[in-house]
């Protein structure tokens, strides 16, 4: 946040402008859908939230895999050794990114699980159906709740980070199942955008949807960057505290090789 302050502020302003624009297109400009009426408008923030949820969980799973795979420095000058050492030096950052991704994925999953039933009540006559896609979404939500609980309440150690990374990577196996649930198992969840769905034909509806997507993605990027910066700064803060305690106790400060703030 310190390094990209101006770019960050620019994107905040852009996001606010797009938000106002999306509001106008969704509620004032785009027409009502013929079959579903007003309630179809939930689609404009339900779908982008679901995609942002996938993005957040992908960031978490990708970072978790990197954390687990690249754990020790390798000797040599080859490409693989170079990649390995690059990530080993930045393990704290990778871990911070995994946590940030999981947290954001969970927030967007909450939005999906709130807006979906609101639409379902009107379209299906019930808030909840034990449909494959809905059930798997609830499952992924619970897996990442467990992930965050593990990170928040287990004692700070390398093994906690490794277990959390394992959970973050394995939990992601549910995400492709959510995506393909309708094609594989059917169910009541409609498939508008994916394979088999006809999509949106009306240009005004398309525009409203695209603007909503852009707004949500920028919001996601900003939130991820802010959350990641906080995690990184917390690591620096913890090290500074440790150094201060060492000084105050009169012992020479123990500074690990990776203790210098990474930029």
């Amino acid at each position: 946040m310190k390094r990209f302050r101006y770019a960050y502020e620019f994107f905040v302003v852009l996001m606010l402008l797009l938000f106002a624009h999306a509001f106008y297109w969704i509620f004032l400009h785009s027409p009502m859908e013929a079959q579903m009426g007003i309630v179809q408008k939930i689609f404009y923030f339900h779908v982008p939230s679901a995609i942002s949820m996938f993005l957040g969980l992908s960031v978490c799973a990708g970072s978790s895999v990197i954390y687990l795979v690249f754990s020790r420095r390798k000797k040599g000058r080859g490409l693989w050794a170079g990649i390995n050492n690059f990530f080993v030096e930045r393990r704290d950052n990778v871990d911070a990114l995994a946590r940030s991704g999981a947290e954001l994925g969970l927030i967007y999953a909450s939005i999906v699980l709130v807006t979906g039933p609101l639409w379902g009540r009107k379209a299906w006559g019930t808030y909840w159906e034990w449909d494959p896609r809905l059930t798997l979404t609830l499952l992924v939500f619970l897996i990442y709740v467990a992930y965050l609980f593990l990170r928040a309440f287990a004692a700070e150690s390398e093994s906690r980070k490794r277990i959390a990374a394992g959970l973050g990577a394995l939990g992601f196996a549910d995400v492709p199942l959510i995506h393909y649930a309708v094609q594989m198992w059917g169910g009541t969840h409609p498939n508008v955008m994916g394979k088999g769905g006809g999509g949106i034909k009306d240009p005004t509806m398309q525009a409203a949807f695209m603007i909503s997507m852009a707004t949500m993605y920028i919001m996601f990027g900003l939130l991820l960057y802010t959350r990641y910066s906080i995690e990184r700064q917390q690591v620096e803060l913890d090290r500074a505290y440790a150094r201060l305690i060492d000084y105050e106790l009169g012992e020479p400060p123990v500074v690990a090789a990776s203790a210098k703030p990474s930029q």
Partner: peptide
Amino acid sequence: SPPMKLGVPKIERQKERFVITIPVLTPE
């Protein structure tokens, strides 16, 4: 408010499992 008619009424929908396909989102 009462559910909208989305192809099949609610009672029938509960009896059989089927996929609601919305091929195209069409404006009113």
